[in-house]
């Protein structure tokens, strides 16, 4: 594996499967009595959050703590970082604090990439969401959840078709999922009104559609993205009602899906907008499970990037 996890592109198929396999074993241990492993004892993980995201932060925090790492939460909002102090200054501060890994959430696309490539810091950089770019651990936990239900928790996702529905244009979750699903052999299908698809969508790996009803019957999983209310004001779509009518997942639509087809959502959900409460709470919904899987997957990433001596991963024996 590469030293950092900045983009889903950093993972080869073997890397991705290794993360999922490792997460599976860690989940098995965590499900039992073991809440804490000594693996990262003495290592410092900094959660560097320039944007609020309680869910992602506590998921990484739980993952780090279960591996016995020391966790420092550095919320940059409201601190000197908001204005003036640069990313570089912050990075150098963390370096002098002896951070072994920096989990970074940033509003600007590419900020984790800079941290990983500029020699400001030696630490491993893990992207916890940057601007409208990527969120690779979210894609890993989605892949883990899908694999667990549809591929018996082993191997890759080859042959599966997964619809990603909603604000693709602004979604880092969609970008990372499009890449990782492809890496794992699945076909991502981006579904949104044309205004919420990026200009070059036809050149992305995978497929796209403007029509949710056509796509739903043939997919193995559907991932509903949160739609921000403010998009409406920028004329991306006329009204929330019209959006929900065309792209919201309700019971009627869910009934057109295959029996085994899963419903995922990265959260937090806008119930009534992109997903109805009935669907969110239905038997095929794995939304709650995604949260638990998030901790296992992040533990796996932390172990694989931080547990060993160097950038290579894999048992050479």
């Amino acid at each position: 594996m590469k030293k950092h996890l900045v983009s889903a592109n950093d993972l080869t198929k073997d890397d991705a499967v290794l993360v999922l396999d490792t997460a599976k074993e860690l989940a098995a241990i965590s499900d039992g009595l073991v809440k804490k492993l000594p693996t990262l004892r003495g290592r410092t993980v900094v959660n560097l959050f320039f944007e609020d995201s309680t869910r992602t932060r506590i998921s990484f925090e739980a993952a780090s703590k279960r591996l016995s790492a020391d966790v420092i939460n550095f919320s940059a909002k409201g601190s000197s970082v908001s204005k003036g102090e640069s990313l570089k200054d912050t990075a150098q501060t963390l370096q002098s604090m002896g951070a072994d890994a920096v989990v970074i959430r940033h509003g600007s696309s590419g900020a984790p990439h800079l941290l990983a490539t500029r020699n400001w810091i030696n630490a491993v950089v893990i992207n916890a969401g940057d601007g409208t770019h990527e969120h690779p651990t979210q894609a890993l936990l989605d892949a883990y959840t899908i694999r667990k239900h549809l591929r018996n928790n082993t191997g890759d996702l080859s042959g599966l078709r997964v619809a990603i529905v909603g604000d693709i244009l602004h979604s880092r979750v969609a970008r990372s999922n499009a890449i990782l699903l492809k890496t794992l052999g699945a076909t991502p299908i981006m579904v949104a009104p044309p205004t919420l698809l990026p200009v070059g969508i036809k050149d992305w790996s995978g497929e796209y559609s403007y029509n949710l009803d056509e796509v739903l019957p043939e997919v193995d999983a559907v991932m509903m993205l949160r739609v921000q209310q403010e998009r409406m004001n920028d004329a991306y779509f006329p009204t929330a009602r019209e959006y929900a009518r065309n792209f919201g997942l309700n019971i009627r639509r869910q009934k057109t899906m295959q029996k085994h087809a899963l419903v995922l959502h990265p959260g937090p959900m806008n119930r009534g907008m992109e997903i109805t409460a009935e669907v969110a709470d239905s038997a095929n919904s794995v939304v709650i499970e995604q949260v638990a899987n998030g901790v296992s997957v992040r533990m796996a990433v932390l172990y694989l990037l931080l547990g060993g001596t160097n950038n290579e991963t894999g048992d050479k024996n």
């Binding site: 490792t22 074993e25 547990g307 001596t309």
Partner: peptide
């Protein structure tokens, strides 16, 4: 599986876990 409890983790590349 004892991988996560090894005392030589940092001396070698991380290894895949085996089932417990």
């Amino acid at each position: 599986d004892i991988t996560m409890y090894r005392d030589d983790l940092r001396l070698r590349p991380p290894r895949a876990l085996a089932p417990t």
